[in-house]
């Protein structure tokens, strides 16, 4: 396959970026999208040019480190992570546009790399059950109906990649935040801090500058882990219930 890649290049946070076009011959259909960039990068290095910086690590769709806005969609045309996207999803001769995540709370670091530390700070605000190591009850002393456990698991599979934010015209992080809020709201372990958790996480989300939910479901459509928008509905319920009855925050 022959591909033309139109890539956002930006030296650092403060520099002005621009698109640059690279023709690539000999692209195999079996290459992953990131392997295609690897091949391009290796050819750039051979020419003494700086390769394109992009985040990636596990390359098996689970670490959430890879990003990339491909042809106007986070992680490209399939509902998967960019590392699991393969070139067989593109046509011979196609021009592919590659941009970083576009959202104010994810400032660009270089080229296609963005800073997602706002996600960490939201989790630090309350995305946990406050138990110390040791002194916990036997695991089977906390029976949980399978249906609840499975549903909590569906929420827990979020990989924190940020595609939901990139997909949203409001750069809302509500799918990300609600996934964690839901996991703990459903499980018995999360009950003690149920109200304070949602209040603190939402407060931090707002402080980071993420927008409100647009109800367009773009996040759900793009989430590589198929996190459902019903999580957002649950978070809203949890939040209002906490506001009515909690004296925290």
């Amino acid at each position: 396959m022959k591909i033309t890649l139109k890539v956002w290049r930006q030296k650092d946070k403060n520099s002005k970026g621009a698109f640059k076009t690279y023709p690539i011959d000999d692209v195999s259909q079996d290459m992953s999208f990131l392997e295609m960039i690897d091949v391009l990068n290796e050819s750039l290095v051979k020419k003494g040019e700086e390769p394109i910086a992009f985040d990636h690590d596990c390359r098996e769709g689970i670490c959430g480190m890879c990003s990339l806005y491909i042809n106007g969609r986070p992680h490209g045309p399939l509902q998967t992570t960019t590392c699991q996207l393969h070139m067989r999803s593109f046509k011979d001769g196609e021009t592919i546009t590659v941009e970083p995540w576009r959202a104010k709370p994810f400032p660009i670091v270089k080229d296609l790399v963005v800073d997602r530390s706002s996600f960490d700070r939201i989790q630090q605000a309350g995305g946990y059950v406050s138990v110390n190591t040791g002194g916990v009850p036997d695991a089977n002393e906390i029976p949980i109906p399978k249906r609840i456990a499975d549903e909590a698991f569906d929420s827990a599979t979020c990989i924190g990649c940020g595609a939901c934010v990139a997909a949203c015209k409001n750069a809302s992080a509500m799918l990300f935040v609600s996934a964690k809020v839901s996991q703990f709201a459903m499980l018995p372990q999360g009950q003690v801090e149920r109200k304070t958790r949602v209040e603190k996480m939402v407060a931090q989300m707002d402080e980071e500058g993420f927008g409100a939910c647009t109800n367009t479901k773009a996040c759900e459509a793009e989430c590589p882990k198929e996190i459902k928008i019903t999580n957002i509905a649950r978070m809203n319920r949890e939040y209002f219930a906490a506001m009515m009855s909690s004296t925290n925050v």
């Binding site: 059950v129 916990v136 009850p137 906390i142 399978k146 456990a149 909590a152 999360g190």
Partner: peptide, 15 residues
């Protein structure tokens, strides 16, 4: 420890 943290392990119908 992991169950106490809310790690959603697989469960049987009895919970």
């Amino acid at each position: 420890q992991c169950v106490a943290q809310g790690v959603p392990f697989a469960r049987e119908y009895g919970g």
